[in-house]
Write a protein that binds this DNA or RNA. Sequence first.
DNA 1: TTTATATATCGAAATATATCGATATGTTTA
DNA 2: TAAACATATCGATATATTTCGATATATAAA
Lengths: 100, 100
Amino acid sequence: MDIIEINKVLSNQARIDILHWLKKPEANFPVQVNVPDFSDGVCVCHIQDKTGLSQSTVSHYLAMMHKVDLLIATRHGKWTYYKRNENEIFNYINSLKNEL
Amino acid sequence: MDIIEINKVLSNQARIDILHWLKKPEANFPVQVNVPDFSDGVCVCHIQDKTGLSQSTVSHYLAMMHKVDLLIATRHGKWTYYKRNENEIFNYINSLKNEL
DNA sequence: TTTATATATCGAAATATATCGATATGTTTA
DNA sequence: TAAACATATCGATATATTTCGATATATAAA
């Protein structure tokens, strides 16, 4: 739990948006055809479409968010699905209350 | 209340430390001789001493934190005192809960 | 087994941040 | 009024971040 690194990751609107969108995947992303539901999150291509950024940038952003444990990644075949790590997000906000 | 800008400001250990130290000025800073107590906060020179950074860097950091309303500045004579803006800090953490 | 597709990584250019010393500004004191 | 002092601002350099297109890798489909 490195608050500084998480704050760096969350110093960018697209990354904040992604985290927010993933709170309600069914409301923010199209239905997925290769998995039954959103229980493993949303595939990179849908997130990319929604941000309008390049594929490499979005992949990089998701990797950053994954590296600081804000997201959980699951691979199904050629797709990678990302979902929120609610525990870590909760711990982060809680740590802020104490550290700040 | 710009979460992104606040997160940028809080992506630095010295600035996090300053905010934390100001939570208990009497425990973290020497007694001040030109004001009766810590009710307006702590003067720049004491904060500078504690960080070990240059005067210009500390002044710049405090200005950044003031700009996003994390700190309140009060001038007494040739000294500037900075204290936490508890309202804004509270609002920031609360916004994170909703936005993230 | 070749081809197509999804994602990750690499390398580069543009922009932003960190941090300093020097200097300017404002205030007090001699 | 001049000197001293606290803080703010300026200008510069080093380092980090942003973002892209190109390429590599892994998997699935033909």
